[in-house]
Design a protein around this nucleic acid. Sequence first.
RNA 1: GCCGGAGUGGCGAAAUGGCAGACGCGUCGGAUUCAAAAUCCGAUAAGGGUAAAACCUUGUGUGGGUUCGAGUCCCACCUCCGGUACCA
Length: 902
Amino acid sequence: MPRYDYKSIESRWQQYWEQNDTFRTEDCVSDKKKLYVLDMFPYPSGSGLHVGHPEGYTATDIVCRYSRMKGMNVLHPMGWDAFGLPAEEHAVKTGTHPRITTEQNIATFKRQLKMLGFSYDWNRELATTDPDYYRWTQWIFLQLFDTWYDADFEWTGPDGVKRKGKGRPISELPIPAELASENGKPASEAVRRYQDKHRLAYVSEAPVNWCPALGTVLANEEIIDGKSERGGHPVVRMPLKQWMLRITAYADRLANELESLTWSEAIKLMQRNWIGRSVGAEVDFRIESGERKAENGAATSPLSEKPFPREPAADTIRIYTTRPDTLFGVTYMVLAPEHPLVDRITTPEQRAAVNEYRTKASLKSDLDRTDLAKDKTGVFTGGYAINPVNGEKVPVWIADYVLISYGTGAIMAVPAHDERDYEFAKTFGIPIRQVVAPAPGSGHVADIDNVAFVETGVAVNSGKYDGTATAEFKSQITKDLSEAGVGREAVNYRLRDWLFSRQRYWGEPFPIWHELDAEGNPTGLMRTDAVESLPVLHPHMEDFKPTGTPEPMLAKAEPTWLYKTDTDGVKLKRETNSMPQWAGSCWYYLRFCDNKNSNNFIDPAKEKYWLPVDLYIGGAEHAVLHLLYSRFWHKVLFDRGYVTTPEPFQKLVNQGMILGEPDENGKAEKMSKSRGNVINPDDIVRDYGADALRLYEMFMGPLEQVKPWQMSGVEGVYRFLGRVWRMVIDDRAEAVQLASNVTDAEPTEEQLRVLHKTIKAVTDDIDRLAFNTAISRMMEFTNFMSNQEVRPKSVLSSFVQLLSPFAPHIAEELWAALGQTKTMAYEPWPQYDPAMLVEDTVEVPVQVNGKLRSKIVVPNGIDAAELQRLAETDESVRKHLEGKTVVKVIAVPGRLLNFVVK
RNA sequence: GCCGGAGUGGCGAAAUGGCAGACGCGUCGGAUUCAAAAUCCGAUAAGGGUAAAACCUUGUGUGGGUUCGAGUCCCACCUCCGGUACCA
């Protein structure tokens, strides 16, 4: 084998690792430091691996191989996020069961990953579609179902941190006396309904996004520009009973506990923005019944002493505002079209117009709402409400620019100081009253006739509050409103509860039954499957065509799956929704620690040993949703005592996307089938080998950066591997044997210095995930050593070790050629000797007034004065100093000398 | 609109405030070869200068600033990429 024959080398070593189970990982090894390095597991699509996948996977593999050599116990698993629509759509077309398709796709992915030589412990492989896995996904759902959030509960977790707010067992939910006393039975129907309202997993009937083409509802975040994220199909809004997860209960903790994580500030910010916490006030506006006049006492004493009611009274509109300081500028109010008070407040004359508007709004998809964003629409209800701060009678409108799902679904409109209200007021001729003036010296200008003034400033036209600065006014009026019982401070989140059900076959079934009455109608009461009976398997089905209605696919299952009678004689119908694809990926990192446990979702000792994940690498497309959902589940499990860390992923890195090859204009675009610029890893491995692919993906540029693919770059690293090969191996011999000048000779001082510099550079670069520069340093080493007449084996051996995390196949082959008999996967990582790095002389740049004028070679370690003396003898320096006065000399010994002259 | 990130040779890119362009690609020249492939050696920011060197000037999106010294720090702006979008 004279030439570098990657084909035979790679397949041989892959076989070796597999046969020797080289990368099997033991749990709870006490004498080694643990390191949990995780890739975002892929969805095994039908099109196979993409060159984007191995980018992150190679990065983690380098860290893992390096860390093993550093003596750590490394967990590096891989699995499959295997539920999802494509396999089901394939089933609709061909009748092939989604499980078959999924298994085939997994087989392809696994073959492709193995071909790249990643050091996964395949014993820990899992797929979210394995009944053994989703058994525990269902179990976690039952924990969510069994948990309510006690926002005021103060406690100290196993991490020793004091927190306020905890997810607690539903059995610990305090039951209001009037419910509990009913029949004296703790499990009375009223109590059960009360509990159901407080669970973290609950059923809600709300307008949802129904996508007829996909045959499922979608979460808001799965819709882009009013179309489904997957496939770009239209989406309509309709009310449906759906499972929701109360992620909003954890909003504050999800935002605050980001702080302790080693994630990029950009990603943390994205999550914070997604959560979108805002602080303001809720204020009650009493509805003006119509006959009553504004003078009716209200104007003189608008604020009365009473506590602010938990729920707004029947005759009040509760609004949320972040600018309570603008209450005196309210000239109208708006209810969301879906707001429950609309019927009540609408006058007979306006009823027809209001109903028409509500109907139109309810049919509007998100796309329509977005498209019409510029033109405000709305209808006057004919009703009025009383402004609590000044007793004014304010007209109440409905308009779809107010969302039922945010805040209280109602706003006070202050057109002078809010852009949306301003536009609306201009459209409908509603008065605009300025109540904030620019603060003196702020440089702001208020031009209320032409544009809303949204900055802070000082109050005007606000009665006794005139002259108060915005911030102070806010807290003062919030306090005053609160004392008067008409308002309170309130916090709102952009984050909504998580719509957790889908109508598809190929997702986890819910472990839930609905009670039926004698007529077979659901009573609204639910029962859970017993934990021991899990998993709830999918029913047998041959026809995967969507029902065409929002009725879930599973409703077509045979009656034996769908119905049963419980031991107490109550008839039950199974929940027929299924869980979204996010469910399985929410906790897979836990199962990798203990994937075969049939008694528990994870063994507590293994959880304690492995968690948290020390390094998590994946695409930025999951920056918000997957990571937020996952953190939410983890926190619930933490509160319920099943995990001991508050966060799952300590360090997160997002790899940058790999774009297609640039076109003739130098423009690079996203790889996609439609553009025809997809690079298939199979082709690269066939033509250049896995080591070359791995090396190229790391050499392209910084891991986190977006970078274009360039085939000539693959050639480059392939040539490098050839040079490494010939540096060690005699490529003209018949068999693999060392080149004749590779000997047992003692290394020269220079050779040692180059080696130790390389060790230091590569080590430091791996530590900061700067793989591209690490490879550069190895190239420099190779360029140097290839030209050495005598190449000591000891130096080459150390170098091969440095190379091994990056290009493990060729490294193992060379390691063996250098006389070693077993895998180098656990050989100690080379150490550098700082003393070896020091050279006798150094070249120091000399500047005059900051401009480079000369470079002088001086003995290493000389002091500043000596350096200056030597520099002054340099001819070209002298030339530039001539006739000038030296004002100052900056000397950085060993680095630089700068004469400042006049 | 708002929030992030990035702009450096022909291209991918390097550079704890201290020699801009390491390393790789490409290109040009040379060696090897009957020839080619493969391989090896050398040159390669731009402009000026020289027989050749030396040397000089200008250069990290644009304009300012801080500093002995700025690709790097600060301010303003331009362009591209990503996220988000009636969230009161």
